[in-house]
Amino acid sequence: MKKCHIAYLACTAALLGTGLGAAPPAPGHVVHLVQPGDSIQKAVDRAEPGDTVLLAAGTYHESVDVKTHGLTLRGMGRDTVLQPAAKAKTNPKSKTKKAVGACAAGGNGICVVGTKAHPVEDVTVASLTVSGFTKNGVYAMAADALTVRNVTAVKNGVWGIAQEASRHGEFRGNTARDNGDAGLFLANSVTQELGATDSEGTVVEHNRLEGNRIGVTVRRLRNLTLARNHLTGNCAAVFVVGDENKPKAGRVTVAENRIVRNNKSCPKTARLDALQGSGIVLTGAEDSLITRNVIEDNVGKSSLSGGIVLFKSFVGTTSDRNRISDNRLRGNSPADLVNTDTTGKGNTFVGNTCKASKPAGLC
């Protein structure tokens, strides 16, 4: 049986010292303790399925590729910080180049990347900060049962935490702040035009999303729950996005979130109108439930502004059979409930507490 790299009691104490109450690894699984100045990647490459790579508090200047099933990459809270490595100075006399991992080359902080045929399974990333990466803080592709928990993603160039072509994900207790696009981004694919895929019960819960362009984007997915999150200070809080591909995006539950003052102003892009003051936007989505959310003081003059907005997608796809019920809305402008998708079929507004709607009569 393999022994832990540090004494078992010390391993247990270190894990409990994170304040998370995490159980020690199962007997036979190794804890690889990494200190600032050590290589995280070397520890990850050395680890076997079920092991934990435990990062002491401090700042690490590197990116990390995770490809081992069942691996846990855990810090000791927000004071465990991953930032981009300093760019190496070019030596014109040298004919060799320093090898750079795929994650770093892509501008990402932590990458969990498998293939369609061989997804990376049961990886956990927890209790650390990823900050300042040119693209994404945490990025997953072809991951099955990825858990991202108590991660702080701050000031990354595109997405704070992102997952594509994956299923069974859990995103809990994270903070994504001041990222260039979405704080949390979940999609089928950004490089291919495909129908929505089944996320098979992915959960986004108890996260704080603040100061991003969009708090959470759910793009061309089905069977996902977004619940009990706090979203404030973004240009838009929640986007559920579909298009003309089949099957349509949908069967998304957005419940018990607090969505307040998402009034940051963001300019128009090639894919999307200017954003400001959007609470929850459904565009090209079907069979979704928007319920028991508190949505207040989201104010803007964008075509997508308002508390809860149904909007025909920019390629003309309608939103159909969505149920908007039992939400508490106030102070949103141009209205608490906005339905510009007048050709959408079967959408219902029931039991909401609000004052103004477009068209009138939805409250």
Score class of each variant (00 low, 15 high):
264 K>N: 11
83 Q>N: 04
267 P>L: 04
258 R>A: 05
354 C>W: 01
229 N>I: 00
209 L>R: 08
40 I>L: 07
287 D>F: 04
9 L>M: 00
263 N>I: 00
272 L>Y: 09
263 N>L: 01
199 S>Q: 06
272 L>I: 13
39 S>G: 13
259 I>Y: 08
146 L>K: 10
82 L>W: 03
191 T>K: 14
156 N>A: 04
60 Y>G: 13
231 L>D: 02
173 G>E: 13
353 T>V: 15
92 P>Q: 01
46 R>S: 15
309 V>D: 05
172 R>S: 09
28 G>A: 03
172 R>I: 13
216 V>T: 12
94 S>F: 01
111 C>H: 12
90 T>F: 11
294 V>C: 01
252 V>H: 06
64 V>D: 06
96 T>A: 13
152 T>H: 13
281 V>G: 03
295 I>C: 11
192 Q>D: 15
150 N>T: 07
334 P>H: 10
163 Q>F: 11
7 A>S: 11
105 A>M: 08
1 M>P: 10
74 R>Y: 02
142 A>K: 08
179 N>S: 02
174 N>H: 05
248 K>P: 13
282 L>Q: 11
63 S>C: 08
285 A>E: 10
268 K>P: 04
293 N>C: 12
138 V>I: 14
67 K>I: 06
137 G>A: 07
9 L>N: 09
266 C>P: 09
76 M>V: 02
341 D>T: 06
343 T>M: 06
182 A>C: 10
182 A>M: 03
79 D>W: 06
10 A>G: 02
176 A>S: 14
102 A>Q: 12
106 G>V: 00
213 R>F: 00
331 G>W: 06
340 T>F: 07
226 L>F: 07
345 K>G: 06
63 S>E: 07
243 D>Y: 12
23 A>D: 10
101 G>Q: 01
107 G>Q: 01
293 N>P: 14
48 E>D: 04
165 A>T: 11
126 A>F: 03
177 R>S: 08
196 A>I: 06
87 K>D: 07
181 D>V: 09
189 S>M: 00
178 D>H: 13
51 D>Q: 07
297 D>S: 14
12 T>C: 05
193 E>W: 03
172 R>Q: 08
80 T>H: 00
85 A>D: 11
5 H>Q: 07
345 K>N: 14
199 S>L: 09
172 R>P: 02
102 A>G: 14
271 R>W: 03
54 L>S: 05
329 L>G: 06
216 V>P: 01
54 L>R: 05
351 G>F: 09
270 A>M: 05
337 L>W: 05
73 L>R: 08
280 I>G: 08
155 K>H: 06
164 E>Y: 14
259 I>H: 11
191 T>R: 14
249 A>I: 02
51 D>C: 09
242 G>R: 03
198 D>T: 12
131 S>P: 00
333 S>Y: 13
237 A>G: 15
35 Q>T: 13
144 D>N: 15
305 S>T: 12
110 I>S: 07
167 R>Q: 14
265 S>C: 00
340 T>M: 01
1 M>C: 05
213 R>A: 08
292 R>W: 04
293 N>Y: 08
293 N>Q: 12
177 R>K: 15
